[in-house]
Each structure stands twice: as C-alpha cells, then as structure tokens.
C-alpha cells in the first residue's frame, strides 16, 4: 500500500479553538471607536442645540445612569434574559420534536406545516392580551410569547437538517439493519446540528424581542421591557436609554455565547451567519 498524499494541515479535526481576544482586537477596536465618536457627536449636538432632556438625554447622562444604577438594570436584565432563554429553550425543544416527526411522516408534515406557517404569519404580539387573560401576569405568558416568536426558524431548519442526508449513507444504515432510533441519533441528528445552530442564531435575537414586547404588556411585573414602559410614561428618557443599553449587552452576550457553543459542538460552522 503506498503512502497517501498529505492533505492541507489546516484541515485537521474540527475547529475547536475559541476566538483569541488579542487576535480579535483588529475587529473589536473599529466598531468601539465608531460608537465612541457617534456618542461624542450626539453629546455635542444635544448641548449645542440645547435640546430638552425630555426629548433627548445627553449620552454622558445615560452612561452615568447606567453605571450608577447598574444593579437595577442588571437584575431587570436577568429577568428579561430568563424569559428570553426560557422561551428559546421551549420554542427550540417543541420545534425540534415537531421537525423530527415531520421528517419521518408525510402525513404529519401535511398536518403540521400549514398550521405552523399560519401561526408564524400571525403577528405574535396580537395574542399577548389573550395570553395574559389565560396565563396571568407572571412569567408564563412572556415565555410563551418568546417561544412562539422563536420556534419557526428552528422548525424549518431542523426539518431541512433531518432531511439533509446522503441517500447512500441511509442505504448503508439500512444494509446493516440499523434501527430507526440508530438512524435518527447517528445520522439525522448529527446532520441537523449545523442547521439548528443557524436557526438559533436567528431565533436568539427574536427571543429578546418577544420577551421585551411581552414585558411592555405586563409593565410593573419586572424586566427591562417593563422598565422602559414605566420610565417612558414618567418621561425619564435617560433611564429608557440605559435599559436599552442593557438590552444591547444582553443581545451581544447571547449571540456570542451561541457562536462559542457552535464552535464547540457543531461539526460544521455555518459561515453565512457566523458574523451576526
């Protein structure tokens, strides 16, 4: 047997390495500088034009509010995060289960997909008042909204993933009399993992939207959405901005966490949305 040709060294094993913070600096610095410049510009504009703080608070005031009241925004942010992640978990679990069923049954596909699309095209916020009537003002309606808003991308991608199987691979599994369970866990599920991560990257930001909107409707029951709603009524816009800042931090954290999970657990990195 002759020695095979040596492939490119870069092609060894899955990319397990996490992003190196120093190497990331050239990508982190420009946006930070851009953000800083924009902040300075707004500060100068608000001062020069003498704009009322009830219309546009100065960025320095917002930042001071954010840090001096940090524990408030942080704890409210954690409530929003819990709703968002809880909704994402429920939505993903239900969508993955449905997708597994749909991938196995044509009948289930015909039954489930049109309904799933109907739910998807209906603006989710329109049912929040109903959910509050049914589920009260606790976490239940909020998590339900976050789940409803996140399930669809996961459903569609998971179905595609469970079906993205080389028919020859499936033939090999059949040729050794693999069980349906083996075909699912050793063939369909791994095939779907990159698709699931691609879906989660879309859904994770949707889940924050769902959580915040649900909190608008349940103002007074906590969460950053509730803070924004109340402070807006009191015309304390610097507090509204501080809450929005915390939401930005949450969004960035969630998306980054997801990209790290993908690098750790997915055998194929989805480059198309890796930068979102």
């Amino acid at each position: 047997m002759t020695a095979p040709t040596i492939p490119q060294p870069s092609a060894r094993r899955p990319p397990l390495a996490l992003p190196d913070p120093v190497a990331a600096l050239p990508w982190l610095l420009p946006p930070l500088i851009a953000l800083l410049l924009a902040g300075v510009a707004v500060e100068v504009w608000v001062r020069a034009a003498d704009i009322s703080e009830f219309v546009m608070p100065r960025p320095t005031v917002v930042i001071e509010e954010f840090f001096s009241e940090f524990s408030r925004y942080f704890s409210e942010g954690m409530r929003t995060l819990a709703v968002s992640v809880g909704g994402l978990a429920v939505g993903t679990a239900v969508a993955t289960l449905l997708a597994a069923g749909v991938a196995h049954s044509q009948l289930l596909e015909r039954a489930v997909l049109p309904v799933a699309i109907m739910v998807k095209v209906t603006p989710v916020v329109s049912v929040i008042p109903l959910l509050i009537v049914w589920l009260g003002y606790g976490w239940e309606p909020k998590v339900t909204i976050a789940a409803l808003i996140t399930y669809f991308p996961v459903l569609v991608n998971a179905i595609a993933g469970f079906r993205d199987i080389d028919p020859r691979m499936h033939d090999f599994f059949r040729s050794v009399h693999a069980s349906q369970r083996e075909i699912f866990w050793r063939l369909r599920m791994p095939a779907a993992i990159p698709f699931l991560f691609a879906a989660l990257k879309i859904s994770v930001t949707l889940s924050l939207i769902g959580a915040v909107v649900a909190e608008f409707f349940t103002a007074g029951q906590g969460g950053l959405g509730s803070v924004i709603w109340i402070e807006q009524n009191e015309v304390r816009l610097h507090k509204v901005f501080a809450a929005v800042m915390m939401l930005t931090v949450l969004g960035v954290t969630l998306s980054t966490a997801l990209i790290i999970c993908e690098r750790l657990w997915s055998w194929r990195i989805d480059r198309s949305s890796a930068n979102i």
Partner: peptide, 29 residues
C-alpha cells in the same frame, strides 16, 4: 449483517473521523 456495501461515492459521515467511520457498521445493530 452479512452484507458489506461500498458505493460509487464514499458516503462517509462528515462529522466522524476515519476511525469512527470505519467503526460505524459495528456500532449499528
């Protein structure tokens, strides 16, 4: 498990390395 199939395309599992791909048929059934 009396049949050993080889296709025109390798049809290997892309998430498994060489060793795990060779082991696949033994793990099933």
């Amino acid at each position: 498990k009396e049949l050993g199939l080889v296709f025109q395309e390798p049809a290997l599992l892309p998430w498994r390395d060489v060793e795990a791909n060779i082991r696949l048929g033994r793990e099933l059934n």
